[in-house]
Computed example of a mutant assay.
Amino acid sequence: MASALKGRLKRFEQRFERVLWRLRLVAILPVIMSLVSTVVAFVLGTLEIGKALAAFGKVDQLDKEFVAELLGAIVSGIDLYLIGIALLIFGYGVYELLISPIEAAREHDQGGGGLLDIRSLDQLKEKLVKVLVVALIVSAFKAMLTLPIKDGPSLAFFCLSVLLLALSGYLVTANGNRTVP
């Protein structure tokens, strides 16, 4: 009697674990949405840069304000590309971690270490943080292009912003260059 009960509990546990294992496939939804969002971000970035280049082609005379606006539009496009890259890394990482390793990526792997070489949740987090920090640096750079510097305090804030951007860039790259004894 006790062995029959143990056998039923074991079968129930095995069925439950199979259902639980298949439930991980629900993660395909954020993968698909992030990949679609990647394409949208790339298209929007391309349109933004295209509009800037079209405006440049129509200009008769270059002045400081126009150049700042033109650079701002180009930097906005680059920022959209970086957001698209972050979405691509997220989708790829979720797929690799929860659904299945992508064999095509492993075939062409030349030693690994690329942005899409994600084998753990910590690697995914680290790569996303790096790309997002670069996107924030680019956004801050765009804001700094049009920042009016009229007096000493505004110059001090501008210099502080440059220092913080340089520090954040250093911290992002310094983390990857640490050697573990």
Rank of each mutant, 00 (worst) to 15 (best):
W21D: 15
K10I: 08
F16C: 07
V129A: 08
L62E: 06
V75L: 14
I85A: 12
Y170F: 15
K142L: 07
E13V: 04
G93I: 07
K127V: 03
S139R: 11
F42S: 05
D117Q: 04
V59W: 11
V172N: 08
E65R: 11
L35E: 01
D122P: 00
S3H: 10
L88E: 00
A104M: 08
L87A: 05
L5I: 13
F12I: 14
T46Y: 14
L47Q: 12
K130H: 05
V26T: 11
S168Q: 02
D151T: 03
L115N: 03
Y170H: 05
L165D: 05
G84K: 00
A27D: 02
V129L: 14
K6F: 12
I74G: 03
R106A: 14
G77N: 11
T179L: 15
S34C: 14
G45S: 08
I74Q: 05
T46V: 07
A54N: 09
P30A: 08
L145C: 06
F90A: 03
L124V: 02
T173S: 14
G113R: 04
G112F: 06
K51L: 14
L47K: 14
V134K: 04
R15C: 07
S34P: 01
T179I: 15
A73P: 00
M1N: 06
G114M: 02
L9D: 08
S139L: 12
C159S: 13
D109P: 04
L155N: 01
D79F: 10
L20C: 09
F157Q: 02
E48S: 15
G169L: 12
